[in-house]
Simulated assay, not measured.
Amino acid sequence: MSIPHGLLTLLRSGPMYGYQLRSEFERATGATWPLNIGQVYSTLTRLERDGLVVGHEPDGEGRQRYEITADGDDAVRTWFARPVELGDRPRDELAIKLALAATTPGVDARGIVQSQRTATMRRLQELTRLKREAPAEPPPEDLAWSLVLDNLRFTAEAELRWLDHCESQLARARARSTSPSVPHTTPTEEIVR
């Protein structure tokens, strides 16, 4: 998730200070990716350094509003126009964990799959409950959360399918490693015998 691009996008609607940006970001994403206020301000500092936002003088309460610049607006347009590449996404901790578990002696990779499947199923049930409670045609202000919720549900469903695949592969590998060695023959060799 590109926090800088998310904050820049929000600033297109007008100047805001850090707490407003955090609230708007969490509202738009249904608080799926909560932001630490320190993360917001450190990101704003970098965006200002890079000329993508400009900070105004603090108001009477010490709040500094930030405004997007023309370069910042160009950066948002470019971000929206560019597809997200698989390599642009963060590393998948579960995939790394299972890959290492499958090749590390003494680690119960199948147990990890089962534990993750249970957790993912619970998460999917919760997401499905939230979807059922949401209006079938969300009002415009809830559309962003509805899209994020659908993404989370579809991702959980895909993870369950992938875990099934992992379990199947692990079972095959285990069967191969415990079965007696059988000479491999091709169909032609079978006929010749």
Rank of each mutant, 00 (worst) to 15 (best):
D74A: 14
D164E: 11
P90R: 07
E157P: 06
L94H: 05
D164Q: 06
A102G: 04
L94T: 05
P58E: 03
T128M: 12
L152C: 05
W33P: 01
A95G: 11
S177L: 11
L47A: 01
S13V: 02
Y66R: 14
V54I: 11
R176F: 08
L152N: 07
D88T: 04
T29M: 01
P83G: 00
A134M: 15
E61M: 14
T178S: 03
A134I: 11
W162V: 05
S2H: 02
P135W: 01
D74Q: 13
G14R: 02
P140I: 12
P138I: 02
L152I: 03
S2V: 05
L170Y: 01
G72T: 14
R77G: 12
T104M: 01
H184V: 13
A175D: 12
S181L: 00
D71N: 13
A101T: 06
S13D: 08
D142H: 09
G30M: 10
T178Y: 00
L163S: 03
G51M: 12
P58M: 07
L149S: 03
T32E: 12
R63I: 04
A173F: 01
E24W: 07
E24C: 06
R46E: 12
T128K: 14
W145T: 09
R161H: 09
I191T: 13
L152Y: 02
E24V: 05
A134D: 14
S23E: 05
P105M: 02
I96E: 06
Q39T: 15
D74H: 07
V84T: 15
P83Y: 00
Y66Q: 09
L21G: 07
H165W: 08
R161T: 05
